[in-house]
Amino acid sequence: MVDLILRGGRVLDPAAGLDAVTDVAFEDGKIAAVGPDLAQSAGTEIRDVSGKIVTPGLIDLHTHVYWGGTSLGVDAPTIAKRSGTTTFVDAGSAGAGNFPGFRAHVIERTEPRILAYVNISYAGIFGFSKNVMVGECGDMRLVNPDECMAAAKANKDLVVGIKCRIGAKAGGASGIAPLQLAIEVADMLDLPVMAHIDSRPPSQKDVIEILRPGDVLTHCFRPWPNAPVDANRNVRAEVLAAKERGVYFDIGHGQGGFSFASCRAMVAEGILPDAISSDVHVLCVEGPAHDLLAVMSKFLALGMDLNDVVRCVTENPAKIIRRPELGGLAAGTPGDATVIELRDETVEHTDVVGEKLTGSQRLACVGTVIGGKWWSDGAEPA
Rank of each mutant, 00 (worst) to 15 (best):
L300R: 05
V280L: 04
A170P: 00
Q180T: 08
V310C: 11
I79Q: 11
V295R: 04
L357A: 07
G95V: 01
L115N: 09
G332M: 12
A150C: 09
N155W: 09
P228S: 07
T333S: 15
A152M: 14
T87R: 08
I125M: 07
R264I: 08
E315H: 10
S297Y: 06
L357T: 01
R311N: 08
D90P: 03
L115H: 04
I162K: 01
Y122A: 11
E325V: 13
R245E: 11
F26Y: 12
R233P: 02
L181F: 01
V132Y: 12
M149V: 04
T110I: 00
A173L: 14
V24E: 05
A331T: 13
G354I: 11
R10N: 10
V353C: 07
E348D: 14
K81R: 14
R82M: 13
A32R: 13
D13H: 00
A337M: 01
L326I: 10
V239Q: 03
L300P: 08
V366Y: 15
A227H: 01
G171W: 00
A150N: 05
K169W: 10
I120K: 05
L191E: 06
R10H: 04
A168S: 14
S50R: 14
N232R: 15
Y66G: 02
T333F: 09
V235K: 10
G57K: 00
A318V: 06
P178V: 04
S174D: 02
L211D: 02
A231I: 14
